[in-house]
Design a protein around this nucleic acid. Structure first.
Lengths: 229, 229
DNA sequence: TTTTATATTTTGATTTGTCAAAATACAAGA
DNA sequence: TCTTGTATTTTGACAAATCAAAATATAAAA
């Protein structure tokens, strides 16, 4: 029963490696290749090898030489904590400080390492314990469990000519978010996919106000939709 | 006219050295001795010498060998920016997130290095452009000018038997702040100094509710008062 | 003036996170 | 099987920030 308070303190670099591994694990399955960390962190491959070995000796992840890494339970818990901070901070910046939807990601990237749990829980309470952030991404709770994402249909593979609602945007780049905002496709928006032409790689959809827009299938795959409740 | 956007990016360590130098300058006058930085930053003397020399070559301060440092205009501007962040964040944590008055200093210490100017200006607007933080310390404005602190009387040297109001607390330690809070001496509180005995080093004062409290002169010197408006 | 105490600087090492570039392993194609 | 291409690892170097401990100024006391 000793040592229960032990809060492992990771540097922000370590937190970023953990978060990148977690996000990769959530989108793919099995081991996280070194290359994905190289790309996510914007460093050269040798740097990742060095960091990963250090983090493995700290018990944050397992390093399968020449293959990649796997988060340990400790590493995953830490990563979920960082993700929770990131998403709660983003929500806060948009909802409370009314910041632009497309600029908060960068800000949250910095703040997620500086916000203490004490401050975070105040923010969480202030926001009324939200379960998703402004992009529709689920927010892990304080215990690190995350609402499972079920089977998510995107505009690219959903049923056609049914009333739908945008629930999540899978691309955090400012460019894409600006596009989404400008065309009224933010989470919550009511839409209906009218036609999808695989050959031309294009899709046609209608907004609540009747306006029709056309977008490419790769873009459509980044917009998650659900039944319009 | 080129180079106007140039926002010098200092590490948080550098920001801390600058802030410490600024705070010392505000309380004393002339050069900032190396020893004051040693104490403020909690490092060994040799570390300060090394850092100071590096910062001098960056043009952030002037190093008078064997004597101390003086902020350059660039260094001072940077330091004022950090102080502005610190105090606005503190105000925000107390007023918006309703955090405990005595715990926000530590939090702000971390957040001041992670909050961007973009976020800061939102916070400033959200709070209605406050001019003092919860301790009564003045908040530098975005241009770096700071409301001058005039001649500040403290409970130790103010007039006796006049209605006064607490305007500022000069000690940020959690212990002292807790004491101040518990005894209703927060900025804004109406008080009156009844008696001061230099010999015994003790002072007696009355609160608005009639309660009388006794405190030592060193403590009294940390509580700034003004005429009760 | 000489001594002593204190503040500051120097020197050499250490940790963390990084890069460049060479070396190596491995899967896939010829 | 041999060769090639790509991913990963190794090696040596570096900047930032730090410490320990020895060296050196300088101000104050004797």
């Amino acid at each position: 029963m000793v040592n229960r308070i032990t809060q492992i303190m990771a540097t922000s670099t370590v937190e970023n490696y953990l978060k990148a591994a977690l996000l990769y694990e959530q989108e793919h399955q099995g081991i996280v290749p070194m290359g994905s960390l190289v790309e996510a962190l914007g460093v050269v491959p040798g740097t990742v090898t060095t960091m990963v070995k250090a983090m493995a000796t700290q018990g944050l992840l397992e390093h399968e030489v020449r293959q990649g890494v796997r988060l340990t339970p400790v590493g995953r818990a830490l990563a979920l904590g960082v993700l929770r901070k990131h998403r709660l901070v983003e929500t806060f910046l948009v909802q409370t400080l009314e910041m632009d939807w497309s600029e908060v990601h960068v800000e949250a990237e910095a703040l997620e390492h500086a916000v203490s749990n004490r401050v975070l829980e105040r923010i969480d309470a202030y926001l009324g314990h939200p379960t998703v952030d402004p992009h529709g991404d689920p927010i892990p709770n304080a215990e690190g469990s995350i609402a499972d994402e079920a089977t998510q249909a995107t505009m690219q593979d959903c049923t056609i000519k049914k009333p739908l609602r945008v629930t999540r945007i899978l691309d955090q780049s400012a460019d894409f978010l600006d596009y989404v905002q400008d065309h009224g496709l933010k989470p919550g928006a009511k839409i209906e996919v009218l036609k999808r032409v695989e050959a031309s790689g294009v899709l046609q959809c209608a907004l609540a106000d009747g306006e029709e827009i056309v977008l490419g299938l790769p873009a459509a795959a980044k917009i998650v939709v659900g039944i319009s409740a």
